[in-house]
Design a protein around this nucleic acid. Structure first.
Length: 389
DNA sequence: GATCGATTTCCTGCTT
DNA sequence: AAAGCAGGAAATCGAT
């Protein structure tokens, strides 16, 4: 049974990954879209479907797919919130999210690149709004936003407390790279008790930088007693690799056994647990950044929808699952598995048109009575109202 | 460690 | 012919 309120558990994988290059600033920078699919689809679909202006997809959607490792600085610890720059704010948010048990992938840090002076004035609703992104379970985002807001208020309260007790505390505003030892000395002098008391909101007992062995270890792919390494290799079966004549011959000689080749595709790494396929589709459909540019309602009253750019939807899904090999063919197979439980139903004769079934995610219509665009999303096990401005 | 659900991967055959 | 659809088979992975 699908649990649409399934929590988005913390993904520890990232802790063991090597440093990644800086996050691309624009969607164009992502490899998956470098093949010019938008142009190709634009011309292809213009013959079949009504066309929409090419919309710049919001990079925030990819926030959890793009590294946030560049925001691992600690300067914010030694400044008051008002003195934080954008990087400090993001570093703090990522740290705070992890400290309260969320994954950094849950944080749309793109939406929080603001100076501390702006952050400290943010209301709970504003933080919630910035936290809402399509690829993270809304319940998780909601809880995370609450936690971040509480933590921020706690930090601000502590700062006020410190201001009153200037003999106890003074922020170190020096360059941490030049004066690391000084900073450390100050913290040592503060003592653990002091940190527990005065840094309560940001105190982290466990050092996450300590590597834990075993994770992201793909060495178990080395041995395959069922298939030869040759036939099991992704290069042999992979669709991305052009096939030479030799490879065609190999295909004739080695019939691939049914099933998923061991060690094929992406490197084995802890997959972030996120939304289910139907929920992912619903979220896209409820987001104006994707509806109608890549997916749209065909008949909303019966929850029927159409893929405008199926490959891009599949790529989004693949990025959500850390799987660069995702295709619409595979994605649609995952969708078809939901026919059995009537979460999705097929729409015969129509191509690229699907429909949520009676057991599909519940989608309420937008509430037109409120001044802004209100979208109420109810999961099967819980109900949450999310307001998009 | 066993089991389960939800995929993921690849396949064959069919339809549009 | 190409793309999409349907569904079988088996592997994988996270959760319990």
């Amino acid at each position: 049974m699908i649990d649409y309120a399934r929590p988005y558990d913390q993904n520890m994988c990232d802790l063991y990954l090597p440093p990644a290059p800086p996050a691309p600033a624009r969607l164009d920078d992502f490899q998956v879209f470098k093949k010019g699919t938008a142009y190709i689809y634009g011309s292809y679909y213009s013959n079949t479907y009504e066309t929409y202006p090419e919309q710049e997809l919001d990079t925030a959607v990819y926030h959890n797919l793009v590294t946030s490792r560049e925001y691992r600085r600690e300067e914010w610890r030694y400044k008051v919130v008002a003195d934080w720059n954008e990087d400090d704010t993001v570093s703090w948010i990522i740290d705070a999210a992890q400290t309260v048990g969320f994954s950094e992938y849950d944080v749309p840090y793109y939406n929080f690149k603001v100076p501390g002076s702006v952050l400290r004035m943010m209301k709970r609703e504003e933080i919630l709004r910035n936290m809402m992104v399509v690829n993270v379970d809304q319940m998780v985002s909601s809880r995370l936003a609450d936690a971040i807001f509480e933590r921020l208020q706690s930090r601000l309260s502590e700062e006020q407390y410190r201001e009153r007790d200037t003999s106890v505390f003074r922020y170190v505003e020096s360059d941490p790279y030049q004066h690391t030892e000084t900073v450390q000395t100050v913290l040592d002098l503060d003592s653990l008790d002091h940190r527990n008391r005065l840094y309560a909101s940001d105190y982290r007992p466990n050092d996450s930088s300590v590597p834990v062995p075993g994770a992201c270890d793909s060495s178990d792919d080395a041995e395959d007693v069922f298939r030869s390494s040759e036939t099991a290799s992704p290069e042999y079966y992979g669709s991305d690799v052009s096939k030479s004549g030799d490879e065609d011959d190999k295909r004739k000689c080695f019939k691939r056994p049914p099933g998923r080749p061991k060690g094929s595709g992406r490197k084995v790494c802890k997959r972030p647990r996120s939304v289910s396929v139907p929920e992912f589709l619903r979220n896209l459909l409820l987001d104006s950044r994707y509806n109608p540019s890549i997916i749209k309602w065909e008949d909303r009253s019966v929850k029927k929808f159409r893929f405008i750019k199926p490959d891009e939807v599949a790529k989004l899904w693949g990025m959500l699952k850390n799987n660069s090999n995702m295709t619409f063919e595979k994605f649609s197979r995952a969708m078809r598995y939901h026919y059995k439980q009537s979460v999705l139903v097929s729409v015969p004769t129509a191509r690229l048109v699907y429909q949520f079934g009676p057991k599909g995610p519940d989608i309420s219509t937008a509430n037109s009575s409120c001044g802004q665009t209100c979208v109420t999303i109810k999961s099967e096990t819980d109900a949450t109202e999310i307001v998009y401005s």
